[in-house]
């Protein structure tokens, strides 16, 4: 290995992207999830992080003509149980487009701790080429760090050096094999009293009417290339019987920061066939 080997010249004019399987979401992301890069999806539970992850696992298998990577995907999950039934349901919509059973090309590995993840990562060196993996999803990163570290300066320092180790390895493999890496992260509530450090496009993030911010803090934010935020808003839908107010959940996704995307957002719905973007804010659905 010589330093001149690290030069990439001339540069390609396009970064390969992985489709969401929905043209509106693709448009928000400038074509989809970029390869060679780490994309983080931040949301509170029940917003649709896992739904979106499962959809990407399937979309990665599509041929390049349909925006996929025609490759297998690896799903590392630290939140249990593994949503097998939902994955199966979604896979039915992809079956007709693919020559093989989509479930055969999804590799699943449970994660128990951050150390466990660090032990696993070096195995990617031979797993990725052998299984033709082009997408790695870690759902969720936050769960790996919950509870294991105490709130003392020394422990926090150990935790953040762990972040950089994991991120560095993931970035290395994503560059080496052209992988798309998607991580999900949870949110934590923001105390009104503490002055909140602003990261990214909006001064504060709201979900379900509460002020939140991404878990794992400032140093973790340096470990991802793109951060997306998904949130939900509960709204009343009138016209029903007086005694029953129907509550409707609206869901949105926004770019918090990304090297290649402007600040933009999009509403989405979760349907049987997957996560889909909506046309506009007036409740008009695609």
């Amino acid at each position: 290995m010589r330093p001149e080997d690290l030069l990439r010249h001339p540069l390609p004019t396009q970064t390969p992207k992985l489709t969401f399987g929905c043209s509106l979401l693709d448009r928000l992301l400038g074509g989809g999830i970029p390869c060679h890069s780490i994309t983080e999806i931040v949301a509170e539970s029940g917003t649709g992080k896992t739904q979106l992850s499962l959809q990407l696992l399937l979309a990665a298998q599509l041929p390049a003509s349909r925006g996929g990577l025609s490759a297998s995907s690896l799903y590392l999950h630290s939140e249990f149980p593994f949503p097998f039934r939902r994955l199966h349901q979604l896979s039915l919509f992809y079956k007709t487009d693919l020559p093989h059973d989509p479930l055969e090309r999804i590799f699943v590995q449970p994660l128990h701790s951050a150390d466990h993840l660090l032990d696993l990562l070096p195995r990617l060196d031979f797993l990725v080429p052998k299984l033709n993996i082009k997408l790695i999803v870690i759902d969720s990163v936050a769960a790996l760090f919950r509870g294991e570290f105490e709130n003392t300066p020394l422990e926090l320092k150990r935790r953040s050096s762990m972040f950089f180790k994991i991120s560095s390895k993931l970035r290395f493999y994503s560059h080496k094999f052209g992988l798309a890496v998607v991580l999900t992260n949870q949110v934590v509530d923001v105390m009104q009293s503490s002055d909140n450090l602003r990261i990214g496009n909006s001064a504060f993030l709201c979900s379900s009417g509460r002020r939140v911010c991404a878990a794992l803090g400032l140093s973790w934010a340096n470990c991802v290339n793109t951060r997306l935020f998904m949130w939900r808003e509960e709204g009343r839908v009138g016209e029903d019987c007086e005694s029953f107010e129907r509550m409707q959940t609206r869901r949105f996704i926004r770019v918090v920061f990304a090297p290649h995307l402007p600040d933009s957002s999009c509403e989405f719905v979760i349907r049987k066939e997957g996560v889909l973007g909506c046309i506009d804010d007036n409740g008009q659905r695609k």
Binding site: P3, L6, L7, R8, P10, L11, T13, F172, H175, K176
Partner: peptide, 18 residues
Amino acid sequence: LENIFYFRVCTYTEQIAV
């Protein structure tokens, strides 16, 4: 783009070497 020489470095050793 042709006049941007892009080096992608993945470790600190590579960074120092470059």
